[in-house]
C-alpha cells in the first residue's frame, strides 16, 4: 500500500489476513485507538468506523489524534516502567545518573502528548494499568534489558508514523520526542553492552506490530 493511497483515503493500515485485522482491533480497542486505521472494506459493518471514539474531532485531525493516543499509551507505559524501576533502587553512580533523566523525559512526554491531544480537540486515553514480568525489578540486568526493549520499540513506533501524521507541526513535535527516545535507546544499549547503533537509519514499525509487542505489558 503506497503513501498516496494512505493520503487519498481513510484506511492507513491493511491487513494480510482477517485474523490480523481482528487481532489489531482487539488490541486497539484496549487502548482506545485505531478506529480510523481500519479499512472499511465492502461489507464491513459501518460501526467499525464510527464506534465510540471518545472525541468529537474533525476528520482532518482524527487520525493524528489516534496516532497521538497511540504515542501516549507507549509513553505511559515507559514512564510507569522507569518509575517502578528507579523506585526499586537497582542502579547507582553513573548508571543512575544516566537513567534518572529518562524517567523524567518519559513523564514529560506523557504531559505534552496529553496536552497536545486536548489542544487538538481530542480526548487523551486514560493511563493504562501496566504489568511487568516477574523479576523485572529484582535486579539491574533485568530492568535495563526491558528498558532497552521499550526504547527500541518506542523509536520504531515513532518512526513508523512519520508518513502518516498529517499536521506538520505535530510531525515536528513528534520528531523532537523521537530523537530523545533514540538517545535513550543508545545509552541503554551502551551501558548494557549492547549495540547503540543498530542501523545507519532508524528502523520503523507499524502500529499493529508495536501494539502486539506492547500488549503483554498492559493489564487487561
Amino acid at each position: 500500500m503506497g503513501i498516496k493511497a494512505i493520503f487519498g483515503g481513510c484506511p492507513v493500515l491493511e491487513f494480510a489476513a482477517e485474523q490480523d485485522r481482528r487481532s489489531f482491533l482487539r488490541n486497539a480497542a484496549l487502548i482506545g485507538v485505531g478506529l480510523t486505521y481500519v479499512a472499511s472494506r465492502a461489507g464491513d459493518p459501518v460501526a467499525f468506523g464510527t464506534a465510540d471514539r471518545g472525541y468529537g474531532a474533525s476528520d482532518a485531525n482524527a487520525s493524528d489524534l489516534d496516532i497521538l493516543n497511540y504515542a501516549l499509551t507507549l509513553e505511559y507505559l515507559e514512564a510507569a516502567f522507569y518509575t517502578a524501576g528507579l523506585k526499586a533502587n537497582l542502579l547507582k553512580g553513573r548508571e543512575l545518573e544516566l537513567v534518572d533523566p529518562i524517567q523524567q523525559h518519559e513523564a514529560d512526554h506523557v504531559k505534552v502528548v496529553r496536552t497536545t491531544i486536548t489542544d487538538l480537540g481530542g480526548k487523551p486515553v486514560a493511563q493504562p494499568k501496566v504489568k511487568f514480568p516477574d523479576g523485572t525489578f529484582s535486579n539491574r540486568a533485568n530492568f535495563l534489558k526491558l528498558a532497552g526493549t521499550f526504547e527500541e520499540l518506542g523509536v520504531k513506533a515513532y518512526h513508523g508514523q512519520v508518513t502518516l501524521v498529517k499536521n506538520p507541526e505535530l510531525l515536528g513535535a513528534a520528531a523532537s520526542i523521537a530523537g530523545v527516545e533514540s538517545r535513550h535507546a543508545a545509552i541503554i544499549a551502551q551501558i548494557t553492552g549492547g549495540n547503540p547503533f543498530p542501523a545507519p537509519i532508524e528502523a520503523n514499525l507499524a502500529m499493529g506490530p508495536v501494539l502486539k509487542a506492547a500488549m503483554p505489558f498492559l493489564a487487561k
Partner: peptide, 9 residues
C-alpha cells in the same frame, strides 16, 4: 527522520 534519530544516538 531515520537519519536524524541515528545522529541523536
Amino acid at each position: 527522520a531515520g537519519i536524524f534519530g541515528v545522529e541523536a544516538r
